[in-house]
């Protein structure tokens, strides 16, 4: 589905992503883990077109998309969420999702903004139907994260890039999002950056460990858990 080839991104002297070659198989959940500053968010930004690669290639279904703009990649089916909730604070939850769904329609100057079935489905799927009329800024943090995912779903992506969707959530809220992610991933490909190891090991099909901008190891959750290199370089930090 998606491949990177020797992908690099430098910020001055720092190589935040340093020669990453990965391939993400369709229909699977791919987790991306690593310590802070490992380059996970930078890698997602490269895949979504928000940052330009210093060198290397990105291919989507075999097509070179390295220099595509974010909106073009979105229309090709790549949807992303952000590390911090990034919703339209002034709009209601339903309006945020409707707006997102409009991105798939041609530019319409005069017709009324109507309800779109895709938007309704996304609201339902994320459990926000009953909270639709509330301003995004007044939703709880957990609900904002749900809304964030609903907005992405409303664009009907085939590949989802999620940056720490569980960050800052309590146990129950995190459980709800994990269930949502499982549901969402059924007919989609997902690349998931996440710190919560229990969640990662329970839902991911493959786990890639990034350290210092490079791929340290990649494998099934069991293999990664068992890997000595990973434990020393990364997991060891969290489980002393």
């Amino acid at each position: 589905m998606l491949e990177t080839e020797a992908l690099c991104r430098r910020f001055g002297a720092l190589a935040a992503v340093d020669g990453v070659s990965l391939s993400f198989e369709a229909g699977k959940i791919h987790a991306l883990i690593g310590p802070n500053g490992a380059g996970k968010s930078t890698l997602l930004a490269l895949l979504s077109g928000e940052l330009r690669a210093t060198s290397g290639r990105v291919r989507l279904r075999g097509v070179d998309v390295t220099h595509h703009s974010p909106d073009r990649l979105s229309r090709l089916g790549i949807g992303r969420s952000y590390q911090t909730a990034n919703v339209f604070a002034e709009l209601s939850g339903a309006e945020c999702v409707w707006l997102a769904a409009q991105s798939r329609a041609p530019m319409r100057l005069l017709s009324r903004a109507g309800r779109l079935p895709g938007a309704e489905r996304a609201l339902d799927a994320c459990g926000l139907s009953s909270r639709r009329a509330i301003r995004a800024s007044e939703l709880s943090y957990g609900e904002q994260r749900q809304l964030e995912i609903a907005m992405v779903l409303a664009t009907e992506p085939s590949l989802l890039l999620l940056d720490e969707p569980l960050a800052g959530l309590g146990h129950d809220e995190a459980q709800r999002i994990v269930a949502l992610l499982r549901e969402v991933a059924r007919d989609r490909t997902m690349i998931l950056v996440e710190h919560d190891m229990d969640a990662v090991f329970s839902i991911a099909d493959t786990v890639t460990v990034l350290v210092g901008g490079r791929v340290l190891e990649r494998g099934t959750p069991q293999a990664i858990r068992a890997s000595r290199a990973v434990r020393e370089a990364y997991l060891g930090e969290e489980q002393p």
Binding site: P70, G79, F88, E90, L99, S103
Partner: peptide
Amino acid sequence: RVNEQRMRSLGFPT
């Protein structure tokens, strides 16, 4: 106006 980057990543050719 509120968040152009978000609009682009949602697919709007802003």
